[in-house]
Amino acid sequence: MKHLLSTTDLSKDDALLLLDTAAQMAATQSREIKKLPTLRGRTVVNLFFEDSTRTRISFETAAKRLSADVINFSAKGSSVSKGESLKDTALTLHAMGADAVVVRHWASGAPYQLAHAGWLDAAVLNAGDGTHQHPTQALLDAFTIRRHLVGRRGGGDPDGVGADLAGLRVAIVGDVLHSRVARSNVALLRTLGADVTLVSPPTLVPVGVETWPCRTSYDLDATLADWQPDAVMMLRVQRERMSGGTGGAFFPSPLEYTRYYGLDARRLGLLPDHTIVMHPGPMNRGLEISAEAADSDRAVIVEQVANGVAVRMAALYLLLAGDHSAEGNDL
């Protein structure tokens, strides 16, 4: 692995290596001294062309816990707002000797371009590009699901280390059309053996969804009651990507959206007792998820954030620590 651009590139072995490494990283984060010397002297650039708080802070924390130097570069207040192209920004980072570039961009495919255009020799980590992919989010979701649902099922390791997600059912609910989180999760969860159902209003289902390795439904109540998912992942309604008021032309009113697709206490009651509630954040409380559901003891939303640091440490470690000129495994 030289870059982490899309969950569709990950084989099952790659995905499991990332999750298992993340489990060891998570174990180090309960120590008194959380910092490891592993990436000392390496430079990680956070290149953010789009607003983000938790992903940037999560990557920054992960890099610092591994002793890498972190440079934050956000498009606002930088030369990008003066019209600098992605290429020139990349050449600047190359000149500064960046070893890894964590990039978030509003254009789908920008990280791929950065990785493959030959402007940089750094490892590129996609931290979300347009409506395309957000691989570390999917990995932290899979890690959280595995920890809660596989680790507890018994038999193997309590954290589920080494196990895949075979047989688990995950419902992904809401604004699938604009969601890179949904796209990344569908590919990764399928690779790991889980079954996925997308639930969303017809206007928020992307064109071509029939080619994705998952089922789709327009009926949340029926999916929760009849399919009995093990995890329910609520997606944020991305109002900033919808033109023309709240919901734009995609749904008539926020209240109607909440009635049909919001997770509340009544819908929680339809689920099996072990089902966990997830949300990639930031939440629109009262729109796609009620405060009651978000604060219930089934919600693992805060834990997802903590797991994000461990997963990003694992990704940085696996991309940066070794010598990639001689690929192979000599242990």
């Binding site: 490494t21 060891q24 470690y317 696996l318 620590a321 010598d323 990639h324 495994n329 000599d330």
Partner: peptide
């Protein structure tokens, strides 16, 4: 670490 392919992290 930088002289060898990536090692798996153990327990």
């Amino acid at each position: 670490l930088r002289r060898q392919p990536t090692r798996a992290v153990g327990v």
